[in-house]
């Protein structure tokens, strides 16, 4: 085997080992890399009270209440468990019932979250507004486009 192919194989083997090391590190620190927990993960893992957490899920249908100007109350759900969220601040444009959201805040004693930040999460579907109208007219609008 010529020297150049020995070098090529050496480089490739080094890369494989290096990526294996990185993958091991990443998957053992998963808890620190995830951006948010789902409500179920939060409840099952007994998270410490009064520590900042981020929770992601959907805003539960017909749970959104506007208490006063900039003060809101809603439930965040992953379709298994749900948490009540209190928030005082400005909501992003995409925030609405049924829409994905990530909130940052503190868990208090009654499994409620006092949120300090609310982000809207959107999915990978892009569609012209006119087509949505068309689909709705023909009852073809699927809920999973949300």
């Amino acid at each position: 085997m010529s020297l150049r192919f020995q070098r090529l194989i050496l480089i490739l083997i080094t890369l494989v080992f290096l990526s294996a090391a990185v993958v091991l590190i990443l998957f053992n620190t998963k808890q620190n890399i995830v951006f948010f927990y789902t409500p179920t993960e939060l409840i099952e893992n007994d998270f410490i009270l009064n520590k900042k957490v981020r929770i992601g899920g959907y805003v539960k249908k017909s749970s959104f209440i506007k208490k006063s100007l900039n003060t809101y109350e809603f439930k965040i759900t992953d379709n298994v468990n749900e948490l009540l969220v209190f928030y005082n601040g400005i909501l992003p444009d995409l925030f609405r019932e049924g829409q994905g959201t990530v909130i940052e805040g503190f868990l208090n004693n009654n499994n409620n979250i006092v949120a300090s930040k609310v982000y809207a999460k959107h999915d990978e579907n892009y569609m012209p507004a006119s087509i949505k109208k068309e689909l709705e007219k023909n009852n073809q609008w699927k809920k999973n486009y949300k």
Binding site: I33, F35, F36, Y37, T38, K121, D123, E124, N125, Y126
Partner: peptide, 17 residues
Amino acid sequence: WNTLHQTASISKLSAPS
């Protein structure tokens, strides 16, 4: 991982969303 960024719209395995 869970991210705020949405997942890919275009992939080889499925029709683009």
